[in-house]
C-alpha cells in the first residue's frame, strides 16, 4: 500500500490542513487495510454484461429548455452564462 494523501487530494480537488492531513492519513490507512481483504481472483477479462443489454433512446428532440430555471442555482451568472474565475490555458 502506498497512500499518497497529497496526490489523492489534488486529484479529488480537496485540500487539508496539516493536522487534518495527518488525521486523514491514519484513517485512510485503516480503511484501505479493511478494503484490501479481497479474494485472489483472476481479475483479467472485461467488466461487461451482455446478458443485460441496454434499451437505447430514439433520436428525438423532447426538451424545451428554460434557461432561467436551469441557471437559478448558479452562484454567479452574467449574460445568460455561468461565470467562473478566468480560465487560462
Amino acid at each position: 500500500m502506498n497512500l499518497d494523501i497529497k496526490h489523492l487530494a489534488k486529484l479529488s480537488r480537496l485540500t487539508f490542513s496539516p493536522e487534518e492531513e495527518a488525521k486523514f492519513e491514519k484513517e485512510m490507512a485503516n480503511i484501505v487495510a479493511m478494503v484490501e481483504k479481497l479474494p485472489d481472483l483472476d481479475a483479467s477479462g472485461a467488466l461487461i454484461d451482455p446478458d443485460n443489454p441496454m434499451q437505447m433512446r430514439k433520436d428525438e428532440v423532447v426538451n424545451q429548455p428554460n434557461r432561467t430555471e436551469l441557471l437559478q442555482n448558479a452562484p454567479e451568472v452574467q449574460a445568460g452564462c455561468i461565470v467562473v474565475p478566468k480560465v487560462v490555458e
Partner: peptide
C-alpha cells in the same frame, strides 16, 4: 471526503 479519497485511490 474520506469516501471521495478512497474512491479516487
Amino acid at each position: 471526503k474520506r469516501r471521495i479519497m478512497l474512491g479516487t485511490y
